[in-house]
Structures are given as C-alpha cells and as structure tokens.
Design a protein around this nucleic acid. Structure first.
Length: 299
DNA sequence: AAGACGAAAGTGGTTGA
DNA sequence: TCAACAACTTTCGTCTT
C-alpha cells in the first residue's frame, strides 16, 4: 500500500481500520484509495432480490451443534427385551459403535468449525477487520481446536483469537469493543484469551497507545496535527517511563485530549472519554501525569 | 449551567506467598 | 488459594468559566 499523502507528500499516513480510511498524519486529509468496503459485493434492486441474495443467516445461537439431539448405541449387548444377543451380532454392534463414534466426532468437529468460522466472519465484518487478519484468526482458531481448548464456548474462543490477532497486527480493538459485537462478556474473552495464549505459548506484545490515536482523533473530528502531537506526547511519555502499567486506551485518550488543548481544537473530557470508551477521571489522571512529567505549559 | 477537578469508595484483575 | 495491590470506575461535592 502506498502510504503517501497525495496532498502534502507526507509519509505519515495513519490507518483507521474501523472507518476503512487512511488519514494523513500531517494535514489530516482522508485518503480514499484502496478502501475496503465491508458491505455486500452484490446489489439488490428490489425486496425479493434482497431476500434471495442476502447471506447473513440466522443468529449463531440457532446453529448449535445438534442442539443436544444425538443418536447413541449403548454399550450393553442386550436386545430390547434384555436377552443376550448372539456373538455374531455383538461383533456387528461393536463395529457399528466404532464407526458411529468416529463419524459423529468428525462431523461434530466440522460443525464446530463451521460455526466458529461464520461467527468469525460476523465479528470481523462488524469490526471492519482486513481479510488477512480474518484468515490468521481462522488459522489460530484451528490451532486452538487441535490443542484442545476445552470448556469454553465457541464464541468466546473466536472472540479471543480475534482479539489476539488484532493486538498482534497492531489494529487497535479493545476487549470491550469485541465483547459488544460478539455477545460474549468482556471478562470471559479475557480469560479465554489468556487460556489461548498460554496454551499455544504465544507472545503478543502489549498494545501500543499510539495505535489508538488515529481512531480517537477521527471520532472527535480532530485534525492531523492533533494526531501528530498526541503521538509525540506518547513518545515523550514512554521515554519518561510513564507508560508501564497504564491502560493503553487511557493514555491514548489523554494524549488526544492534551493535544486538542494545545492546538486550540478543544474537546471536553467527556467527549474524549466517550470516544475512547473510558471515563473522564482516567483521562484526568493521565492528563495530569502527562502535564506534570513533561512539564507542559498550556496557553 | 456546564465543564473541570479531586476525594472516596467500589470493582475486577494481577501477583506473590 | 488467598490476601495485598494497582488501575480503573462510579459517585458526588466543589470550584471555575
């Protein structure tokens, strides 16, 4: 991808995946080249066509594997009246059991995967994730299955692998956002994420606060200069060891807030907090730290 | 009246014994 | 496994613009 702003030739182009936009970090121009449209690739000209072409399908909960209805061949070699059955028949039953089991295991795995992949599709299109991430997440999901992540809902594992891949690829998505679109509790995703990373011994770097800045700034309709300034602030703060232990979103939000003040594009703490999905108080605390530690003076 | 600020108490998660 | 702990949130009162 040619990440050069056509307007000012700056190479500081930030990607905003949620909106599918490239935003120039220097002049704030929104570059529309190479945008991904997450909408359907077909068109519908009337309601009938819409109906026949839409492939969204029913909510995932209707697609549970077998809905608990299963066929089993029991282990007792008795007929319906309780009488023993012949050795020949017993051998036949043994073979039937064996194959029946194999068949149902194979198909249950397939069903599981089918559900997981459709859920993955759903989540990633809600989050506007690029195909590459989606593919990677699918691969990771398969690995999880092979490793036998147990006792977790499919949806939770899917959400966890999506979160993991987002972090790995530097695409900022918070746990809360993923929880909102997946219908799995944030806590549960966190737990599952941990289980997954432990089990597969993945080492995923901490989210970098600067990744969030373009999104937060765009949500508040702030210029490219503010973004630039915010990123600068984060960099300075990281030199001062202000980063460790703090939530990356809080820092990013505080940096955006501070930058908006410095450049006279003021936003209220409440607005920034809402855009970033955290509270004003946290912004205040981070803002105070930034101000104190960096010795900033506002005009 | 709205926003900024800060204190205090509560919550969920991490860590170390 | 449990308690201590840090980060964050919620709530609320006060100050500033």
């Amino acid at each position: 991808m040619a990440d050069v702003c056509p307007e000012c030739k700056s190479k500081k182009v930030n990607r905003d995946y949620e909106r599918g936009e490239l935003v120039c970090g220097s002049c704030g121009l929104i570059i529309t080249d190479g945008i991904m449209d997450s909408g359907p690739e077909w068109r519908a000209f009337d309601a009938d066509q819409m109906k026949s072409r839409a492939r969204g399908g029913a909510p995932i909960s209707y697609m549970r594997p077998n809905k608990g209805l299963v066929t089993e061949i029991d282990q007792y070699n008795r007929d319906i009246r309780g009488a023993r059955i012949s050795t020949k028949k017993q051998a036949q039953l043994y073979r039937m059991r064996k194959w029946h089991k194999r068949a149902s295991i194979a198909s249950s795995k397939e069903r599981n995967l089918a559900i997981a992949l459709s859920e993955l599709d759903r989540i990633s299109s809600y989050l506007g994730l690029p195909d590459s991430v989606r593919e990677d997440a699918a691969l990771l999901y398969r690995k999880c299955i092979e490793k036998g992540i147990r006792g977790k809902m499919i949806e939770a594992v899917v959400a966890a692998v999506v979160y993991a891949k987002c972090r790995e690829c530097g695409i900022p998505r918070t746990l809360t956002e993923i929880a909102d679109v997946s219908g799995v509790k944030r806590k549960e995703i966190g737990r599952t994420y941990r289980a997954v990373t432990d089990e597969l011994s993945l080492h995923i770097p901490l989210a970098n606060p600067t990744y969030y800045i373009p999104r937060f700034a765009a949500a508040l309709k702030l210029s490219g200069e503010v973004q630039e300034r915010a990123i600068e602030l984060i960099k300075k703060a990281s030199n001062k060891k202000l980063i460790s232990g703090r939530g990356p979103t809080g820092l990013a939000a505080a940096a955006v807030y501070t930058a908006s003040l410095m450049l006279g594009e003021q936003r209220t703490q409440k607005e920034v907090a809402e855009g970033a999905g955290i509270t004003e108080v946290t912004i205040r605390n981070r803002y105070k730290e930034l101000k104190d530690e960096l010795g900033l003076k506002m005009e």
